[in-house]
Amino acid sequence: MKKAQTEIIGLAIIVILVILGMTFVIKFLMDKPPVETKKEFTQAELASNMLDAFLETTARENNCKFTMSQLLQNCGQGGGITCNNKDSCEYARDAANEIFEEKTLGKVWNIPYEFKVFYSNDENDNLFQPIGKACAGNKKSKSYIIPTTKGPLTVKLDICS
C-alpha cells in the first residue's frame, strides 16, 4: 500500500470519528428538557391559591352559612354543626371532593394531588379519608393551620409534579 493511500485511510477514520462525535453532541442538544417556566409557576401558585380560596368558601345551604375553615374547625373539635343532614366533617369533605376532584384538579385537569386534614402532631391522624392520591415523586405543597380545642389542625394540599 502506498504512503498516500494510508494517509487517506487515516483521514477517513478521523472524519468518521468527527461525524460520530457531532451526531452525539447534536442528539444531546436536541434532547434538552422542554422549557417549563409556565408549568413551574402554575404549580407553585396552584396549591397555595386553591387552598386559600377553598378555606374561605361559604357552604351552599342557606341555613348553614359557614366557611370551609369554620366547618373543618368544628369537625376537629368533635362536631356539632349539621348542614343538609351531614355533619361538619362529611360536609367539608364532600365540598372539597366536589371542588378538587369533580371540577378542577382531578377529573378536569388530570393533575395528581392529595388533600388531607390531620391533627398537626400526627400526619396519619386524618380527620377524614384523604382526597386524591399521595404523590410518589416531587410535589408542591401548601398547608394551613386551624386552631381547635383538641390541638391544631393542618389542612394540606399537595400538587404532584
Binding site: E45, L46, D52, F54, T57, T104, W109
Partner: peptide
C-alpha cells in the same frame, strides 16, 4: 396558553365567598 388561577369570589352584600377560577 391557558392559565387557571383559583380565586375567591366575595359577595359584600351577604359577606359570602364562592370558589372560582
Amino acid at each position: 396558553l391557558v392559565t387557571h388561577i383559583p380565586i375567591s369570589i366575595f359577595n359584600p352584600e351577604n359577606d359570602e365567598n364562592a370558589f372560582g377560577l
